[in-house]
Amino acid sequence: MTGAVIEIQSLTKRFGGTTAVDDLSFRVEPGVVTGFLGPNGAGKTTTLRSLLGLVRPTSGRATFDGRAYTELADPLGTVGTALEAASFHPGRSGRDHLRVAAAAAGIRDSRVDEVLAWVGLADAARRRVGGYSLGMRQRLGLAFALLGDPGALVLDEPINGLDPEGIRWIRVFLRDLAAEGRTVLVSSHLLSEVQQTVDRVVIISHGRLAYEGTLDGLESGAVARVRVDAADRDALARALAASGAVVEAAADGLRVSGVDAERIGSLAFAAGVPLKLLVPEREGLEDVFLEIVGEGEIR
């Protein structure tokens, strides 16, 4: 199976005066799990809803193998979707919720029971959705996504509300789906939540593309810094700044970037400032992520 290539081209969406998505472009390839990341309010959901024909973009296009969702001959068979705030009629059973969609897509009822068993909801299938827990609703949303056995999956915050066992289950599940050649796009506001699952990431911030590429590429973008301190901190700072290093004062010393530890040592020696601390530091992926999305300052 080869899933459809998802392509977002110069997508812009304004709601009144606010721009939710601003000239966003990226591609999602089949066969890998792609994380779609950004803080809450970055425009992830608006992008996904534009891709799925629920929201009309102000300009730009979002397509599956070149076709807009509304032009797909077999939408549920092409793309499976689980959106955040998955919407269910509380008085309808989980099984009936899927049967309604199955009828609309021309899918046989036996498939409904199949996907319900798959996501572990077989026992609760005939109960009203109003009594479901958040985790159960997430599973029902996932069952809806799988209903048409689609080549592409678009999942908005699918891990939210799952218990630890459910999180482990969905990670394996998504990797398996991608290994089968499907296109898997998973959104999240936390990198750590999907870090172990995704191969590639698309990071957006304030509606704009901030990073697109592999996780390794993201890691290499991490800024190497050195924590350094001396009894005469001011003299040290002057000496380092004079050589072009970027120096930040902190409570427990100076944070220096632009020069490595070895160079700092020789600069201090040349300036006659004895050091009492010299520690190279490397940012974690999460720090890089927060820096990219412009929320580094509130960490």
Binding site: G53, L54, L72, P75, S87, F88, V100, A105
Partner: peptide, 14 residues
């Protein structure tokens, strides 16, 4: 009211 337009329009985008 129950936001079921989302699954409805996903299954039948026209």
């Amino acid at each position: 009211r129950h936001q079921t337009l989302t699954p409805t329009f996903l299954a039948t985008p026209r």
